[in-house]
Amino acid sequence: MGDMSKTTNTRSSRLIVLAPYAWLVLFFLAPFLIVLKISLSQSTLMQPPYAPLLALDAGWQGLKDFFGALSLDNYAALFTDALYRRSYLKSLEVAAVSTAILLFIGYPVAYALARAPRRWQAILVLLVVLPFWTSFLIRVYAWINILQRDGLLNDALLALHIIDRPTTWLATDSAVYIGIVYSYFPFMVLPLYATLERMDESLLEAAADLGAPPWKTFFLVTVPLSLPGIAAGALLCFIPITGEFVMPDLLGSSATLMIGQTLWTEFFGNRDWPAAAALAVVLLVILAGPILLYQRREARALERR
């Protein structure tokens, strides 16, 4: 009796261990293989708009023909066409600059949150995430409203005499940065807050006791000890911003052509699924580095706990 319950136990625990892998295979590996296959195909005007298709009824010869028809042409095109290269670089640039701005604004906010009286902290954290309870698109359209020529931003700047005639915000890089920084703000603040909040206050007192004024304590103790939070926040922002589509599409112009839009154009505009698939695969390869880095850090943090 005891033995039986033990075996069922191990069997069910094995199933539990397998569950995440099953999830990954079903929703990550399988779709990825499909995308990879399409990226090696040729664009056609048929339905579906790529060839070859795997014809299992043709038997061994069909399989041979199928693999023979796959080629790396789409990837070659990616490297020869300057448009693709530019949108990759633009994406990385926007992601890097946005992440830097987010860190610069997010750190003081997270610091203030962590130093706020305990009983206020939960409410303040809630306020940081509260805007995200409204639909994402509504918030983006709100920004279009704020940023347009007779929008709130120009009104405010005019009233404060910072500018003397309305500036064009919409369809500029600035608008894209404003939108991205706004929408990724909690992803930067929350991990930073988590590390800063956990920091032992007696360490700051010890630094002061040993002769370090507050600004030096900040750079010698607080910043080094919050590096895990900085890394988590930066990666959590950088990775998705690189593939960002909505912000540059709705707030930017053709000058802020990021890879997400290029991909969209290939897929829906040109109906060139193989080129779009190749773009996606290359984006994944570019981001694989930061993603692995992030996951390693997370795993290590979990181990330490």
């Binding site: 007192e205 010890a206 006791d209 002769g211 370090a212």
Partner: peptide, 14 residues
Amino acid sequence: PYRRPVNMMFQSYA
């Protein structure tokens, strides 16, 4: 504290 010529050993060591 950072200008006082006294030093402290903390209970938690810090």
